[in-house]
Simulated assay, not measured.
Amino acid sequence: MKFTFSLVSITEIKEKSQMFTVYGFFETRWKDEYLQWNSSDYGGVKNITTYQNNVWRPEISALNTMIRLNLIGDPALPVIINNDGTVRWFAGEHFSVLCKLHIKYYPFDKQECSLIVGVWGYGVEDITFGTLDDKVMFEFYEPHVEWEVMDTLLTIDNWGDTPLLRVNFFLRRMPDFTVLTFLVPIILLSFLNLSVFITPVGEGKIGFSMTVYLTFAVFLGSLSSRLPPNSHETSILTVYLTALAVLCTCIVLISAIQTRVYIRYKDRPIPSSLRFLAKRHSWFCLSCCRRKDKYLLNENSVTSEDSNTIKADGKDSDFDNLKITWDDVMNGLDSRLFWLFISVVVTLTSSCFLTLFLSSQNTFKYF
Score class of each variant (00 low, 15 high):
F3Q: 06
T4V: 11
T4S: 15
I10R: 02
T11H: 04
K14A: 13
K16M: 14
Q18G: 09
Q18K: 15
F25S: 07
E27A: 07
W30Y: 15
D32W: 15
Y34P: 04
W37S: 07
D41R: 11
V45N: 11
T50E: 10
V55Q: 06
P58G: 07
M66D: 08
N70E: 13
N83S: 15
N83V: 10
G85K: 02
V87D: 02
V87H: 03
C99R: 03
C99Q: 09
H102R: 14
P107L: 02
F108R: 00
K110D: 02
V119Q: 08
G121E: 12
Y122H: 10
V124H: 05
E125H: 11
L132A: 12
F140M: 10
E146K: 11
E148K: 13
V149L: 06
T155W: 05
G160E: 10
D161P: 01
L165E: 03
V167F: 04
R172G: 05
V179P: 00
T181W: 04
V196W: 00
I198Y: 10
S209V: 08
F216L: 05
L220T: 02
L223S: 00
P229E: 07
Y240K: 01
L244I: 02
V252W: 02
L253C: 07
L253K: 09
Q258H: 08
R260I: 09
R264Y: 11
D267Q: 12
P269D: 14
P269L: 08
F276D: 12
A278F: 07
K279M: 13
R280E: 14
H281M: 08
W283D: 11
C285I: 12
L296Q: 13
N298K: 12
S301L: 14
T309N: 14
A312P: 02
D313H: 14
K315S: 15
S317F: 10
D318V: 05
N321I: 03
I324S: 04
M330D: 03
D334A: 05
L337K: 09
L337Q: 04
S350K: 07
